[in-house]
Design a protein around this nucleic acid. Structure first.
Lengths: 117, 117
DNA sequence: CCTACATTTAACGCATCGGCTAATTAACGA
DNA sequence: TCGTTAATTAGCCGATGCGTTAAATGTAGG
């Protein structure tokens, strides 16, 4: 069923290997072999993790000769965070004040109003 | 494998029904039957969704007579957000400035330093 | 005690996930 | 053109996820 965007993003983040890959990519682009190096799993497995991350929009990939470089695309993290932000007032007492403050400096989008997922 | 805390949290959030349940609970506690009402799925299915949410720490449950009330516990969302925040600098150009500002007003925990997952 | 109501547990089916090895594709370079 | 290296695809397997229906459990109340 996981057909909606947020489900795809959260599913992608649910795997520790994939999160570790994202962490690695935060330090710079890397090829599949480079990304596989720290792990005990096979190259095809890494390849499929990358496919999952790509489909979630969390990485983009480019090809140079026979190497496929992956780079981090954190935009979906922003989406996921945006969803969670709706609950921030429940955990952070001073959220409202801070939020208002942030919006003032940032002049962000007019606030996500009411999409239930 | 999903044995680490973040994996459990993200897995719980990966299902749209569970996210909708959380959204509902943001408006106040509810019983299993009340939570099931908007959905086309069986009560046992909802019951298991609640179990998943509970194991992720996203809800807590209390029993009054034969009713089990669920209430939102957003603390894990804070954890998940904390993980994502590490990438914020990649998507938000003005993050560093804002982050510093936030830390100044909030006097938060001394900043997550270096846990790779 | 017996019934009704709320919820969970059991047992099943089916799809997806995450791993593997083997085979294939793609590009380079001698 | 042939061999090497990089990466993906194919096919398999066991585990898990999410749904179902039927049965069991727990609690209140006549």
């Amino acid at each position: 069923m996981a057909t909606d965007r947020l489900s795809v993003i959260f599913s992608a983040l649910a795997d520790p290997t994939r999160r570790a890959i994202l962490a690695r990519l935060a330090d710079g682009d890397a090829t599949v072999t480079e990304l596989a190096e720290p792990f005990d799993i096979s190259l095809p497995a890494i390849s499929r993790h990358l496919k999952v991350l790509e489909q979630a929009g969390l990485i983009t990939r480019s090809r140079t000769a026979q190497w496929r470089s992956s780079s981090l695309n954190p935009e979906p993290l922003r989406e996921a965070t945006a969803w969670m932000e709706r609950y921030r007032r429940h955990w952070d007492a001073s959220f409202d004040r801070l939020d208002a403050h942030l919006r003032r400096i940032q002049a962000q989008a007019p606030q996500t109003t009411n999409d239930p997922q």
